[in-house]
C-alpha cells in the first residue's frame, strides 16, 4: 500500500513479465522470528501499560531492498535510471530513442511499470530492446521488491544501462527508492511550465530533469524561460536537458552524459540528492 494514496489496498495482483513457467522466486526474507513466544499467563504484577520504543522508519523495508538492489546493480557494473513523469510525457519514446541512439556504445535493458497492459513493453520489444513489463494492478508506483524480481528476468550481464520506466504518476513514486543511480524526471512542453511547482517532491527528488517534446514547444505555446526558472527553483541541484526524442534534437548531450556517468565508478559519481 502506498503511503500517499492508499493504492493497492486490495493488493496482491502485481504481475511481472509473462511467466514462461512457474518457478519459485527467491523472495526477500520476511522472516517472522519464530522463537516460540511462551504464552505466559499474565502475571498480576505485570499489569499496567508499558512503553516499547521502536524509532523505526515505515519505509525501512523498501529502503533496505533498494540498497540491496543498488549493491547488486553496481556489482553488475550497471548504470540504473528511474524514469518518472506524469502519464503521456513521452517516457517510452524517450527511452526507446535513448536505447536506439546509444547503439553499440551502451547496451540498454528496460523494466516498465504500468497499472495494466504491456503496450509499452511491446513498443520497446519491437525496437529490439530487452524489456520486462510489471503490471501493478492497483498500485500507483514501483517498489524495490518489484524491481528486484523483474531484474532477475533480464540478462543483466549483457547490459550496461538498466532503465526503469516508472508508473506515470508525479506523486507516489517520489517516495520509493528502487536502487537507482539517477532519478530522471521528464517535463514535456505540452503539459505546462508549472508542473515542477505543482509536484515539488518529485521534482525535488530528481537528479536529472529532462524537458521533452521540444519539437512541439512552439505549437503548445511553451514558455521555455518560465519552465527553466521553475525547474531551477525546485530541482536546483539537478542536471537539466532539453530535447526532442522524436527529431533527435538535443539528444547528443543527454547520451554523452549517460556515457560519462556509466564510465564513472559508482562511488565517484556526483549525484546530488536530497
Amino acid at each position: 500500500m502506498c503511503k500517499e494514496c492508499g493504492c493497492g489496498l486490495g493488493g496482491g495482483d502485481v504481475k511481472i513479465g509473462v511467466p514462461p513457467h512457474e518457478h519459485q522466486h527467491e523472495h526477500g526474507h520476511d522472516h517472522h522470528h519464530g522463537h516460540g513466544h511462551h504464552q505466559h499467563e499474565p502475571h498480576v504484577h505485570d499489569h499496567g501499560p508499558q512503553t516499547l520504543t521502536l524509532n523505526r522508519s515505515l519505509m525501512e523495508k523498501n529502503a533496505r531492498l533498494a540498497e540491496r538492489n543498488r549493491g547488486f546493480f553496481h556489482a553488475k557494473k550497471l548504470l540504473v535510471l528511474n524514469v518518472v513523469s506524469s502519464p503521456g510525457s513521452g517516457k517510452t519514446t524517450f527511452i526507446r530513442e535513448t536505447a536506439a541512439r546509444l547503439g553499440a556504445r551502451l547496451r540498454v535493458g528496460v523494466i516498465v511499470g504500468d497499472l495494466a497492459t504491456d503496450n509499452d513493453a511491446a513498443k520497446l520489444r519491437t525496437a529490439g530492446i530487452p524489456v520486462v513489463q510489471i503490471t501493478t494492478g492497483t498500485v500507483c508506483h514501483l517498489d524495490a521488491e518489484m524491481v528486484s524480481k523483474a531484474a532477475s528476468q533480464l540478462d543483466l550481464d549483457h547490459l550496461d544501462v538498466l532503465v526503469i520506466e516508472n508508473v506515470g504518476n508525479l506523486v507516489c513514486p517520489a517516495d520509493y527508492d528502487l536502487g537507482e543511480d539517477l532519478r530522471v524526471v521528464l517535463l514535456s512542453t505540452t503539459e505546462g511550465e508549472d508542473k515542477p511547482l505543482k509536484y515539488p517532491p518529485m521534482f525535488h527528488s530528481a537528479n536529472v530533469a529532462v524537458v521533452t517534446k521540444g519539437d512541439l514547444a512552439a505549437a503548445a505555446g511553451f514558455d521555455r524561460a518560465q519552465a527553466l526558472a521553475n525547474l531551477q527553483r525546485v530541482s536546483h541541484h539537478a542536471e537539466v536537458f532539453e530535447l526532442s526524442a522524436k527529431t533527435g534534437e538535443g539528444m547528443h548531450a543527454w547520451l554523452d552524459f549517460l556515457v560519462a556517468q556509466h564510465a564513472t565508478a559508482p562511488s565517484q559519481r556526483e549525484v546530488p540528492r536530497c
Partner: peptide, 19 residues
Amino acid sequence: SGELRRGQELEIAAVEIDK
C-alpha cells in the same frame, strides 16, 4: 539548499502495551 535535514520522517516512535 540541497540538504533537507528533517521533515520527511514517517516513523513509528513507540507503542504502549498492556500485558
